[in-house]
Design a protein around this nucleic acid. Sequence first.
DNA 1: AATGAATGAGACTTCATTCAT
DNA 2: TATGAATGAAGTCTCATTCAT
Lengths: 211, 211, 211, 211
Amino acid sequence: MTAVAPVASPRRRRTQAERREEAERLILDAAVRLVAEKGLDEFTLADAGEAAGYSRGLPAHYFGSKADLLSAVADHIREWFSTGLRTRVDRRRRGLANLIAGIDFYIDACGTDRTMLLVLHTVLAGALHKPPLAQAIARLNRESAEEIESAIRAGIANGEIRRNIDVRAWSVLILSSVRGIVAQWLVDPDHVDLPPLRASLIAVLKRNFAP
Amino acid sequence: MTAVAPVASPRRRRTQAERREEAERLILDAAVRLVAEKGLDEFTLADAGEAAGYSRGLPAHYFGSKADLLSAVADHIREWFSTGLRTRVDRRRRGLANLIAGIDFYIDACGTDRTMLLVLHTVLAGALHKPPLAQAIARLNRESAEEIESAIRAGIANGEIRRNIDVRAWSVLILSSVRGIVAQWLVDPDHVDLPPLRASLIAVLKRNFAP
Amino acid sequence: MTAVAPVASPRRRRTQAERREEAERLILDAAVRLVAEKGLDEFTLADAGEAAGYSRGLPAHYFGSKADLLSAVADHIREWFSTGLRTRVDRRRRGLANLIAGIDFYIDACGTDRTMLLVLHTVLAGALHKPPLAQAIARLNRESAEEIESAIRAGIANGEIRRNIDVRAWSVLILSSVRGIVAQWLVDPDHVDLPPLRASLIAVLKRNFAP
Amino acid sequence: MTAVAPVASPRRRRTQAERREEAERLILDAAVRLVAEKGLDEFTLADAGEAAGYSRGLPAHYFGSKADLLSAVADHIREWFSTGLRTRVDRRRRGLANLIAGIDFYIDACGTDRTMLLVLHTVLAGALHKPPLAQAIARLNRESAEEIESAIRAGIANGEIRRNIDVRAWSVLILSSVRGIVAQWLVDPDHVDLPPLRASLIAVLKRNFAP
DNA sequence: AATGAATGAGACTTCATTCAT
DNA sequence: TATGAATGAAGTCTCATTCAT
């Protein structure tokens, strides 16, 4: 479909490692879709195998146990979020703009990546009762907080944000607000109008951070 | 069915209805504790019966099915929240004070009712995948929003709050913030310091609502 | 079918406890038959349930796990052996006669209780690799050795057996011989002729124990 | 298939057949160790491949099926026993000495070859339920009996042993005793003291065989 | 009313076996 | 030759649910 295959090997066969890697990836993707659709406990390893186009037994074969597969899902979603956030945020820009970019990443995902957000919030709640997930979420929270705090500090450094705010508290507060908004939107998208929420939230930040 | 109620009995025996009601209540309480401890899917009807001091079969006998028991749990938690909120809020007071009282009810519960908050957030997330729970949560959200909006409107009416805010958006925003804060605290209480969060949140409200 | 039921209760219903006890017993019996037929690892809990006339799930329900069911089988067979041995042996008799009675119990069982012997020897070997079985077998060996040693000592006391034998070693030796004989007979009954073996063994005892 | 074997190669590469033979041997050895450790049913073909330093799939590739691998193990152990016995026994010696040498081979193995004895007794019991093993065990029993009987007959021929004993019965009896002793020792080495057992057994033979 | 015996569906997991590389 | 990817059957175990007592 893309690159021309090497001469004399019109359709190169995949190596074993490639086959395995692909299978693991496809199963993980399927598991993510299933978690979004059914939740952590209502899908089965067999579902994941079949949804990925493989046999019912393969997920257990590769991931060992359902708990391990769920851990992999949690880590996958954490990575998605962290990567997306870092991609949107550009540390060369000013602090406030980066803060808003981060918020927009989260809110825009409601339109573009509802599945991922659904899984993210499912895993966030799952962390309350499943220690392996709690580990991934702890790391996610750490990474998110660092990103937000560093944006605030950049804003302070360049004079956009007043010095005497509680950076740590504001970091938690911002993350809480966005997550809370998305959580409500996920449950009832029709009654949660995102643009005014985004506008209000950003207005709050500007007003309260003003030096 | 048979014996006439002993008129002279100095300590009247409880009626069947009373005993049934008590058993149902004890089982529901046990279910709440178990949901807090293990989540929605990891406890069994038999667990609930035994934790309540009854037999393994009684929860099914009274609640019919696990789904119905979970619905009862969801409704129980919704009622706890709504009642607690209304008890704290006093509509004769001014609007802003009531808003803060509502926030404090939620945040204070971290110290006094961790179990209930755990169940509340478990059910909130469960609503993403379990329609019967979604119903209770929809009602909870409606009731919460009404309470917050009416407090805001009261504040506008008495001049505490400027007229040109988006009441609906602010209502969602406030609920989002508090829920987001509590959600983070539930996962990692040691790294989420509530008092400064409360202070920052209330400072935000005062500053942004100021006419 | 047999005894007349109590008046006014032509066919008394069994209590729950009776039902349960009977079910457990029937499942255990079925498991014993299946171990004899297929070995410890080749039968399933479902097999045991169905062979007992119940559902496939009941053995797990009552015995918890296959390992626990096998432990119950091991203990059942130990008890069968110990009881049978004690029934044959009469401590009021002289020592040598009791020794021979014990040997005869074992050898006669080849004709009357092949199934039990098969299970016994299956469990004896299973003890090599399954610690829970080893526990039952350790107890069986202890009880067997005690019975044999006390018979030998009785024989010494009444002058049938010379004083200077190594009681402990002879106890192990006698048990070893009988078990070894039965083990060979179980594998190939047609080529192991029991009567001459019994005769030779008893002749050995008499000759070597003679004062 | 392609290259010609390098004639001048100073250190000839092993042939495919040699490599295959070595791999098969290593896998068989690994299987023996695993049977000793876990029993016949609790180890997997993949275990055997990895324990031998090869891939998980090689045992199936070479032995075809697990049943076939177990048959190979059974035959391997039979051969070990027969060879060891014949090495110890020297038909040029007198009969009784050979009998004792055979017994010593078995008992000495408790100190030197516990693994092999463990496998031997595991396979002996396995023969009760697995026809392919029964075949190897039948042959082992035949060979053992022949060896013992021929020693007894030699003893009779040279006047060490009285003529009127039941050679067949004594052969089974001796094999039974030794196997029974080793079986008890395998389960509980600390409570089975071999030297006095050996002494008593040999004393029995001498006394009962005396013309 | 309340117990708990019994069922049976279904989840997880293991593993012998087949097959592509 | 040798690896290991992939399958699919089967076993263990759990538990919501039904039903006898």
